[in-house]
Amino acid sequence: MAVKLEARDIRLEYYQPRTDTRLVALDGVNLTVMDGEFVSIVGPSGCGKTTFLSVVDGLIAATNGRVMVNGRVVSRPGPDRAVVFQDASLLPWRTVERNVVYGLECLGIADAEAKARARKFIDMVGLSGFEHHYPHELSGGMQQRVNLARALVMDPEVLLMDEPFAALDAQTREGMQEELLRIWLQAKKTVLFITHQIDEAIYLSDRVVVFSGRPGRVKEIIEVGMERPRRLTVKREARFHAIEDRIWGLIEEDLKSRIAGDRPPDTPRD
């Protein structure tokens, strides 16, 4: 399999004029995602995972390091990457259809063609018949489907998903996870998925990247190694819990060291 997305030695520093200090948000992050792979990043809140995603999308320029898609260095947003945003961020003054064609509009694609393409993906996310609804008339889950369709219609090389289900209630979230896997199998996209829900990351992914916070670093990468397609019931199996425990342990270490104020010596876990 070919490498689809590669981030090499990503370092990001902020300068804060008010306090005249520098803040290191990301410290040498390396990550490789293969073609068609589903990779999640988990980590405590504030660990820089969303910032990392913004760097990959090109919304934030890194201080050092580079991001490559298909071996080409990218430094600004482009149609080869599309983001599924946190809390949907649908434009409230646009209908479902107008929201989905938004990215195509920005590329200057003719309206008729854009609408035809949109129809396919609105259908894929199961929202046929809602084309002319406004976002406020949809439930949170439906809004996230539009959010997903808006990214998929761009036919990107890589789909970047930024905690898209964080604001949903537990039941809707599980439903959406299952839905996402169905769509992913259908659309055959490479996905980089950000979440703070460990079970969500495991259930969806081929590999789970655990971030440690302040500054953000890759702490460990874990192979999930479970067959697909996956049913939601997999979440109640012992092997699932084993992975969950392991990741939780990694994050807990990080949280504890943060509370203690410094990093503890690397003690092996039992």
Partner: peptide
């Protein structure tokens, strides 16, 4: 800010950002 971010992520031009995000809001 989040709508602006959406527009930037879709590589919207300044004019497009203005007409599609700023003006309606």
């Amino acid at each position: 800010a989040r709508y602006l971010q959406v527009a930037r992520s879709f590589s919207a031009s300044e004019l497009k950002i203005f007409t599609s995000i700023i003006l309606p809001g």
